[in-house]
Every structure is written in C-alpha cells, then in structure tokens.
Write a protein that binds this DNA or RNA. Structure first.
Lengths: 332, 332
DNA sequence: TTGCGTTTCCAAAACGTTTTCGGTTATAGT
DNA sequence: ACTATAACCGAAAACGTTTTGGAAACGCAA
C-alpha cells in the first residue's frame, strides 16, 4: 500500500537507520550512499509519515488556530489574520489546524486538553475577550500560545495587537488638522481591552492637540452598526456643537454616516468622521470613510513568528504592538 | 510527562487492552471494570493521543481544506465556506487543516502527496479554475475529495456548487418583472465554469421571459470592480437602450453603479441592476444592491457532509447543486 | 469426570518513524 | 605489525495506541 521507509531501505540495500539519516541530512552516512538513498526515495515517491514522525519526536509541527467567534458572515478581522498565520507558519514548516472554542466546549474538554490530545505544538488564540472564561486557561497552561488582540502575558503566553492608543491619537490628530475643535468619541464595548486603550489614546491626544478634554463627549456603541447610529444620535443630542467624531470601529462609523444622512448632516463639512479597522466596506460607502487601518495580516504573521521562536529557540513570550495606519478618504 | 493508556491501565489494575476497549465502548469488558477504568481515566485526565491512534488506525480523522487563492484581503467567499466546513466536520469528529496550493507548490510536491504525508483522510478543494493544473490531479487521485464551485466528478471526487443557471434565471426574472425589456449581461471571466452556467441561465431566461435574445448584450468584466465599470460602459455604448443589467458578481455590479453615478444614470429608474454573490458590501452601497445570494456557508457544510459520507459509508461522490436566492434591495 | 460455550481479560504484534548504542571497516600513526 | 582513530552503518528500542489470537474462569450438560 503505502511506501514506507522500510521499502526505501530494502530497495537501496541499506538499513532503515541509514535511510532516515540520509534523508534528514545527518552526518554519519557516506556521500554516495546518501545519494543512492535519495535517488531511490524519489524513485519510489516516498513521503515520510508525519504521523509516525510526530509520535516518536513528540512534536507535530502543527499548531492550532483557536477562534472563539467562528460564525458565518463573521469577522472581517479573522480572515486576514488567518492567512497571515498560515503563510508564515507554512514558511517555517508548520501546519495549522482550526480549533473552535465551540467544538471544544461541546466535547466538554478544555481547549488545552483539546490541543494536547491532537499533539499540537502551540496555539494562536483569536477573538477572546477579557471576560472570557478562557483567559485563565490561556495564561495558566504550559501550552505555548500567543494571543491576538488581547494583552495576556505569562510564562508560556505572549500577545500581539495593534497599537490602539497611537491609532486613536492618529485619528484625533487628523480631525484636529482639519480644524475640528469639539471632538467626540464613539467607543466600542466597555469591557474590551482595545476599547480602554483607544479611550486612553483619545484622551491623551485631545489634551495634547486641543487642550481641553470633556468626557461627556465619549459614548458607547458596542461595535455594531445600530450601536453606532444610536451612539452618534446620543452624542449629538448631548453636544450639538461637536464638529468631528472618532468611531472605535468602521461598522459603528458607517452607522454614524447613516444617521448623518437621515438627519441631514453633511459629512465632512458639518461633521468630520474617522473610523477604525479599515474594513472592505470603508472605501465603498459614500462618502468614503477615512479610517485607521489595522495591520491584520501582519498581526497573524507576527503571532506566528513569535510562537515558533518560542518553540524552536526557547525565546520568552513577549508583547508586541503593531503600528496602525491612517488612511485618508473623504469623511475627514 | 504525558499520561498514557499504560498509566491508566496500571492505576486501574488492568491491561492496556482492557483500557482501550473500555474507553472505546467495545463489548467484551465487564461492566464494573469498564466503570472503574472510565473513572480512573477521568481522574488522571487521560486524553488518548490522536497521533498514536492515527498511526495504528491508518486514518487521522483530519481532512484538508485546500485553498488555491489564499491571499490577504482575499475572497469574501472563502470565509463562510471555511466555517461551514469546519462546523460540520467538527460535528462528525474531524479536524481540518489548512492547505494552500502555494506552499505545496513551493515544496515541489503535488498537493496529493502533501496530504498523504500528513495522513489526511480527504480534502475539500476551493478556489480552483478549469484551467488550473490541479484539476487533473484532483480527478485522477484516489484521495477522496470534494470540489467547491467546479463540476469535477470522478471515482473519488465529488463537487458542490450553487445552481448558477437558476441564479441567473432568478436575476432576469426579477428584472423582467420590474418592466425591463432590453437586458444586458456583464459576465465574469470567460474560462470560469460558473460564467458559462450563468450565461446559459441568462440566455434561457431572456428567451423565455422576453422572447428575443441578442447576444451583443453580453460583455465581459472578469469579476473585478474596474472590469464592471468598463464593461457597463461598453455595453451602454453598444446598446444605449438597455434598461436592466445583470452582473455576474457584486463587485462588478458595484463598479457598474459607480459608472452610473459618474454618467448621471439613475438606478434603478433609468437602469435596473442585479448582482451575484451577496457580498457584505451589497447592502451598504447606495443604492443598496439587489443580488443573487450564494449559500456559501451551506456549500461548506454540504461539501463536508459529502466527504464524510464517502469516507465512512463508502458512498459514491456526487454533484450537488445548491439553490441561490434572490435578495431584493434597491437597485432592481 | 469430561467436554463445551461464554464471558472476561491479557500478551504481543503492529503502525512508521527516530535515535541510541554499538559494531565493522578503512585509514593512519607508531 | 599493531593499535588508535575515524567513518560508516545496523539492530533494536521507543513513541502511544488498536487488535488479534488465545487463555483463564466459570457454568452447565452429558
């Protein structure tokens, strides 16, 4: 059936030991036998079994991508992260298998046990929140992991996220440079770590660039389109003189845009708007949304890179912030 | 280190054979010992090694998701398919590992060898085209596979795709019911299988619903935004009297919308438009795009289901068409 | 007592690798 | 000629499971 190392050994007239050595580039095998083995292996189209190899080596060259909100129609975010992770992991010779918290939960096992049963060497965690029951597991477990978009740091757990405070700063700087002086902030869910950071950046920046900070100008829209509409309406009711607003997500910003159209508010003349994320939609809505782009793909790459460094070089996990980028379109 | 079946056996005072049997629900083990073994296993938090199991069983309960255009910012299509695949595969107890044609190609192995080396039980193939070098491999190989969005059928290879000809029919039916009589078609890339089918559906439907068919009303925009703009311009130049147009993708349709705005054409009053895909953007552009929705998630589910039926029940692969759905918004 | 079937259990082989430890040559040094 | 060293190679154990082919114990009929 399958062609094994034994078949190659037989065909090449050597032992399996020698075949293994020859193919893996070990040193103590004669150059001519090595060539012969390689030749024979190619002839037979021999592919070493990753499974057998994993068993004996006790590592699988396989890492899990844990996603905790794996829903259809879901996250614009996840896809780019996923291909970033896959690309760089493939480069390092690792496979990636999908792990959903739902299926783990359904089987009543912790996700760590889930990964261990499959012999995964490590895991990249996406989509979890501060109040998630999983965060404890992530930081406690000895399974090497790196978390995306949540600052969790421990002996075996690093993180990578975008520099949210600077992102927020860029946003208000842009608004100020366009002449805005009363700047509002529609933040996302209050318990999200990113919300806290964006708020901090926002506050720092308005203190620095406009001088006076008024915390009644921040409202919450919990990251949804409708939330954005509602929040902007509330903000405007509270302070009709705001001339610019920063939304903590593009989706909310688009909701805000819809409110503006309905209310006859001209964007950007009456009200300048900048979002956060740079989702696909942003360039297509009218007026096109200026926003702070998150380096989604790069976050995936960086997370993957950190994980294999931990695995192969024994590096300590760390926290890395990736720079966001202002992309200027029509709304500010 | 790791707790193995041997540890459980020792702790329960039985042989490993008995532990294996007890845990896997085999018949010849006493009820009381079974309970004891289960109890001990739980106590020790024992998880059978999937790797070891795969080795001896010669199947991994792991299937590959082959994607051939895995790029950042990529396919809206892929994500939903992916979660559909993952969801139903998880239900059946399978894992899914990502396989990109790029990495396989980079390692100079056929993707089948790639999968075999990893012991994957089967593979779901997405994103390949008729002129792809992989199609031969897919149909020839004995690795069970099911292809999404390309009608490839052989001994070990089935497919699932959306019913494109009916999708096209729905589109023109809608257009006709709004009073359109001169209907144009902006098709995608000519070599794509889906393009052929949509064209067929288009022609059949206009023959049926409006009577006269004019093949000068079909142009090609190769699935891009710019292509859609260009193609619509060309179509309008060729036949200024068209009052409705069906685009073979939402992206092209949106391009068309942009052209209309630039040219001062009112949609849907002067020109009715229906797209294909129902991408996220569709509901956000103005006017909101009427379109034919593809059941992306369901395609993933269906593909997964077919594959495990092939694997577990020895069913023959088949071709299944999933019904698309007209979603009416503002452009038609 | 013997024979036979059932039930419950186990020892050992197998799956396809890597690696340890040692063995055989050939080469070189005295 | 004898030893020391190096270079090359192989037998066998290990990784953690499942499964095969019996074996022990027991009951029951002859």
């Amino acid at each position: 059936m399958r062609v094994t190392i034994r078949d190659v050994a037989r065909a090449a007239g050597v032992s399996v030991t020698t075949v293994s050595r020859a193919l893996n580039g070990a040193q103590d095998v004669g150059e001519e036998t090595r060539q012969r083995v390689i030749e024979v292996a190619k002839q037979l189209n021999y592919r070493p079994s990753h499974v057998a190899r994993s068993l004996v080596l006790r590592k699988s060259q396989n890492i899990g991508l844990l996603v905790s909100d794996f829903r259809k129609g879901g996250h614009h975010f996840l896809y780019d992260v996923l291909v970033g992770v896959h690309d760089t992991l493939a480069e390092y010779g690792y496979d990636v298998t999908l792990v959903s918290t739902d299926t783990a939960r359904q089987q009543l096992v912790s996700y760590v046990d889930f990964c261990r049963a499959r012999g995964l060497d490590g895991v990249i965690v996406t989509g979890i929140r501060l109040d998630d029951p999983y965060v404890e597991e992530v930081v406690e477990s000895t399974l090497p992991s790196v978390v995306i978009d949540l600052p969790l740091l421990s002996r075996h757990c690093g993180y990578v996220m975008t520099d949210n405070v600077n992102g927020a700063r860029y946003a208000v700087r842009r608004l100020v440079s366009r002449g805005c002086r009363r700047i509002g902030f529609v933040n996302g869910a209050a318990h999200a770590a990113v919300s806290r950071e964006r708020l901090r950046g926002f506050e720092e920046a308005v203190r620095q660039y406009v001088g006076v900070y008024d915390d009644r100008l921040v409202v919450y829209g919990d990251f949804t389109l409708e939330g954005g509409q509602r929040a902007l309406a509330e903000l405007l009711a509270r302070a009709p003189d705001v001339d610019g607003v920063f939304f903590a997500s593009d989706l909310m910003a688009i909701g805000g845009l819809q409110h503006c159209r309905a209310a006859g508010i001209r964007v950007p003349e009456d009200l300048a708007v900048v979002g956060f994320d740079d989702i696909d939609l942003a360039r297509f809505v009218t007026p096109a949304l200026t926003t702070i782009a998150q380096p989604r793909y790069e976050m995936g790459c960086e997370a993957a890179k950190m994980l294999v460094h931990m695995l192969e070089k024994g590096e300590m996990p760390s926290g890395t912030l990736l720079p966001p980028q202002l992309v200027v379109r029509e709304t500010a």
